[in-house]
């Protein structure tokens, strides 16, 4: 695929202006997205234990974080659950989108609608019905049940994102690969998947985020030792969401951002 930047200087001036406008807009939207994050990080240095009104500056909460086992364990649980969920959701979602695109099943439309049902189903309804279901089949509540529940509401997001991408896909692409002697599986893996990559990445990001932030379904499907960060945070609201939670979020967010920027910097160096 040609990199867009290569052709950008050739863009007509009007379009360049449009691009510039969109760039400024994007900066503004990023400010909107990160405004609460800045506040959140700032308040991680608040001396007030209730962390509602600003009182003074301290590093105390970062130190306290090391000794608070439940919170760090909950973050670890959340990451484990979100990672497994993402992988499963991407596999099911991408595969499903491709199959529904390539083949005309007798129940294609019904399937399509069913896939979207987890998005509309109220969380508590899904949480309770899954709780009843897991109990009936005698599956002990824990990591597995939480992951099963999360995959169920995450994979439709991947599927829908990938389908949108597939709609503009040139059908000749797969045929060409098949004509060149590739097996359908190889054609899918080597030709289609790379084409779908932006949508798959989008879908994966959405699935990971949804799983990290889900509260109600998690509450009804988790068991001993599988408490996630949202469930712990929600429980803490009663006593006051103390700045330790902000400190945890701050560390997590900042290391992730540093990691992302650093790795893209590395890649830039290596391609040079």
């Amino acid at each position: 695929m040609p990199t867009p930047t290569a052709s950008r200087p050739l863009l007509p001036s009007g379009l360049r202006l449009l691009n510039l406008g969109f760039g400024v807009w994007t900066v503004l939207v990023f400010i909107f997205l990160y405004l609460p994050i800045l506040v959140l990080v700032a308040y991680s240095f608040n001396t007030s234990k209730l962390n509602i009104v600003w009182e003074g500056f301290t590093f105390r909460w970062y130190a306290d974080l090391w000794s608070n086992v439940p919170i760090t364990r909950a973050l670890k649980n959340s990451l484990i659950i979100a990672s497994f969920t993402t992988v499963a959701a991407v596999v099911i979602g991408t595969g499903g989108a491709w199959l529904l695109h390539r083949y005309r099943y007798r129940f294609s439309r019904t399937l399509q609608t069913l896939i979207c049902v987890p998005m509309i189903m109220p969380e508590i309804v899904m949480g309770i019905s899954l709780l009843v279901f897991f109990t009936v089949i005698n599956l002990e509540l824990g990591f597995l049940t939480v992951i099963l529940a999360h995959v169920t509401f995450c994979f439709p997001f991947v599927l829908v994102a990938v389908q949108a991408r597939l709609q503009g896909l040139d059908p000749a692409l797969e045929e060409a690969a098949l004509d060149l002697g590739a097996s359908p599986l190889k054609a899918f893996w080597l030709v289609i998947v790379p084409c779908l990559r932006p949508a798959i990445i989008s879908g994966a990001l959405m699935a990971f985020t949804l799983s990290m932030d889900e509260l109600i379904i998690t509450v009804f499907t988790n068991g001993l030792g599988s408490a996630t960060l949202p469930t712990v945070v929600y429980g803490m609201a009663k006593k006051g969401l103390n700045p330790m939670l902000n400190a945890l979020s701050a560390i997590f967010i900042l290391t992730t951002i540093a990691f992302v920027l650093f790795s893209s910097h590395l890649r830039k160096l290596s391609t040079r």
Partner: peptide, 21 residues
């Protein structure tokens, strides 16, 4: 890809903490 991640990363904090912000 970096920008995409940056769009999503704010949402990896907890919902309640974001809302309180």
């Amino acid at each position: 890809n970096t920008l995409l991640l940056l769009v999503m990363i704010p949402f990896w904090t907890s919902f309640l903490i974001r809302t309180y912000a």
